[in-house]
Amino acid sequence: MNYEVFQWINDLAGRFPFLDKGMIFITNSVPYVVIVFMLFLWFTGNKEKREEKQYTAMYIVFTCLLGLALNAILHFVYYHPRPFVTHHVHQLVPHAVDSSFVSDHAVLVFSVACTLLLRKDSWKYPVLVWAIIVGISRIFVGVHYPADVIGGALLSLGASIVVMQFSKKLEPIVQVLFNIYKKLTKHIPVLAKFSH
């Protein structure tokens, strides 16, 4: 089933140049989009909403770090070959021949989406749709199976639940980070106004 769904999506690659370019752009732009979105959360909104958005940004960082750390351990103890290693596929982007399960990209984007969902942020549904599209793009370009993406989503959901459950214990760390930001930006008025 995993390979059949992979084939169904990956077989679309190479047929429509505009679709190929779009999927390559989506899959390659993930780190940059995440950074831009984090800055958006940090610097937008009125003063009342800003603190809530900045906390959300902090929780996203914690969730990403936890999810990626767990995935690194998983990759260390379990190796699953990527689709292009064991099958003839339409591979549109270069990739190392490391473990396929689970997808780091999926962990990253679903960490953002799951945190927003748990925080009931207004961007939760658009970001969830984006995360799903990114997951599909990883299959489309030939570097992940559907199970890798689903596994990444579930790992991110678990990580975000853990972070939210322990949010009170994380509060001292959050305050330290807020204070570091305040000290770094106190002489830059345009940035200082976004501190607590």
Rank of each mutant, 00 (worst) to 15 (best):
G45M: 09
R50C: 01
K53A: 01
V61P: 05
Q54F: 02
A72E: 14
L66S: 07
L70K: 06
E48F: 07
T44C: 04
M58S: 12
Q54N: 04
H75F: 14
G67F: 03
I73C: 15
L70Y: 04
E51H: 11
N46H: 10
L65Y: 08
T63G: 02
T56G: 08
K49A: 12
L65V: 11
K47V: 12
T44D: 04
I60R: 02
T63A: 12
G67R: 01
K47G: 06
T63I: 00
A57W: 01
L70E: 06
A72D: 15
E52R: 08
N71C: 10
E52F: 07
K53Y: 08
K49L: 11
A57G: 06
Y55N: 13
H75M: 13
G67H: 02
C64Y: 02
T44V: 05
N46C: 09
A57Q: 03
Y59F: 12
L74K: 12
L74F: 13
A69N: 05
G45P: 02
R50W: 05
I60F: 01
L74N: 09
E51V: 15
A57P: 04
L70V: 09
Q54I: 01
K47N: 08
K53L: 05
N46T: 10
L65D: 05
G45K: 04
E48W: 07
K49S: 12
H75A: 14
L65S: 14
M58P: 01
G45V: 05
L66T: 00
E52V: 07
L68T: 15
I60Q: 01
T44H: 09
T56E: 09
N71F: 06
L70R: 02
E51C: 06
I60N: 01
C64Q: 12
L74Q: 12
Q54V: 04
F62D: 00
K53S: 04
G67M: 03
N46I: 00
K47R: 10
E48T: 15
I73P: 08
Q54M: 03
T63S: 11
T44A: 05
T56C: 12
L74A: 14
C64S: 08
F62W: 13
Y59V: 02
T56D: 07
E51I: 10
Q54H: 05
E51T: 13
E52G: 10
R50L: 09
N46Y: 10
I73D: 04
A57F: 01
Y59G: 03
L66M: 12
L74H: 02
T56F: 03
E52W: 11
V61I: 15
T56W: 04
F43A: 06
F43N: 04
I73K: 06
R50P: 03
K47H: 08
K47E: 09
C64A: 14
